[in-house]
């Protein structure tokens, strides 16, 4: 991969940096922390910087969706197509290419006639919000379980390890599909109308339940090797408390693993959440959601294929950018890994 060659090239350049500096300013060697070195390596990786920009743009869209849509002058709930007679008698946009014009940049939705641009902005907000919660919770629990397993060891390690195995052998997708309604039924009686935040909460909970194991396994294996290292033994000898050893000696050393895992998990969670909504068990209309857009678009792809491209290409860009960013972050943090 090109990014790996760039990263190794970047790695080779690192030792030259200080020597060039010492040539300019004699008798002074600039010390850099590993974090600064990683940041320098990352800044040299053009793919990584561009992808970080794209990912940042998506996060900004998620945060400022209402502001963007207010500036754009549309909202994702109004049925513009029906109100302004932009749909024909079959519910299809009258204008070509899905009704794209200066008023509706990405066209209008067939059937209901909502504005696709506004739907997409709000949809990204919903999907990214859910996935971000899932990712943060999963990583937090994964790190906790992994630390306990690795540091306490013995029977605790064994039982938590078997628990992880058990959780990993659940058919994930089936589990998500089956238990989202069960969790919702926990809070809402079947006869009542459920509030949207309950569904949000249920989706987070269900995905989080089966989302933490990969992180805990990685953290466990890292902690197992770290706790045999001299600096941890030294800390133990000097009488440092467990909390101090964990927070000052172990956590900083697995920080890069956690960061890389987070960047890898988030796009997976986004696509899983969108997949659930697509299957009809995630978010429900009229809440705008990335996955629901695919469901709607799949209904109309034969007569209006344009609709499919907006959520589809947006998601493609998002996932590609995130994956490449994950690679760059890994290269920057740990230049030794050769893929």
């Amino acid at each position: 991969m090109s990014s790996s060659t760039q990263a190794t090239a970047g790695n080779d350049q690192i030792p030259e940096g200080p020597s060039a500096d010492t040539a300019a300013v004699p008798l002074e060697i600039i010390g850099r922390s590993p974090r600064q070195l990683a940041w320098l390596r990352f800044k040299r990786d053009r793919t990584g910087v561009i992808c970080a920009g794209i990912v940042g743009a998506f996060i900004l869209i998620a945060i400022f969706a209402p502001l963007i849509c207010a500036l754009y002058g549309k909202n994702p709930y109004t049925l513009y197509g029906q109100n302004d007679n932009l749909l024909n008698s079959y519910g299809m946009p009258i204008k070509p290419n899905g009704g794209i014009d200066s008023n509706h940049w990405f066209g209008i939705e067939p059937g209901l006639g909502r504005d696709i641009f506004a739907l997409l902005m709000y949809g990204i907000r919903t999907s990214l919000g859910i996935s971000l919660c899932v990712t943060i919770l999963s990583v937090a629990l994964g790190v906790l379980v992994g630390l306990i397993q690795g540091y306490v060891g013995r029977k605790t390690d064994y039982f938590l390890g078997r628990l992880t195995d058990l959780m990993m052998s659940f058919p994930q997708q089936l589990f998500f599909i089956a238990f989202t309604p069960v969790v919702i039924a926990l809070f809402v009686k079947p006869t009542e109308q459920e509030p949207t935040y309950i569904r949000f909460f249920a989706l987070v909970l269900v995905q989080f339940f089966l989302g933490w194991m990969s992180v805990s396994r990685l953290v466990r294996s890292q902690v197992l090797s770290l706790r045999e290292r001299e600096f941890v033994e030294a800390a133990q000898l000097t009488g440092a408390s467990t909390w101090r050893i964990v927070s000052k000696e172990l956590l900083p050393n697995i920080g890069s693993t956690i960061l890389v895992q987070t960047t890898l998990l988030l796009p997976v969670n986004v696509t899983t959440e969108a997949g659930l909504s697509y299957l009809g068990v995630g978010m429900q209309d009229p809440t705008p959601d990335w996955g629901l857009m695919f469901q709607k678009a799949a209904e109309y792809y034969q007569s209006d294929i344009t609709y499919m491209f907006f959520p589809g290409i947006a998601m493609l860009i998002f996932v590609v950018a995130f994956n490449l960013l994950g690679d760059s972050v890994r290269d920057a943090l740990d230049p030794k890994t050769i893929r």
């Binding site: 991969m1 090109s2 997949g275 792809y301 294929i305 994956n323 490449l324």
Partner: peptide
């Protein structure tokens, strides 16, 4: 080598619910 890695990266990032309808179409 480069094209293959680009193709597979794109493949990894697309979704079945996106390319499925497109492929049928």
């Amino acid at each position: 080598d480069k094209i293959a890695s680009a193709v597979s990266l794109t493949g990894q990032s697309v979704q079945i619910y996106f390319i499925g309808p497109l492929a049928i179409y």
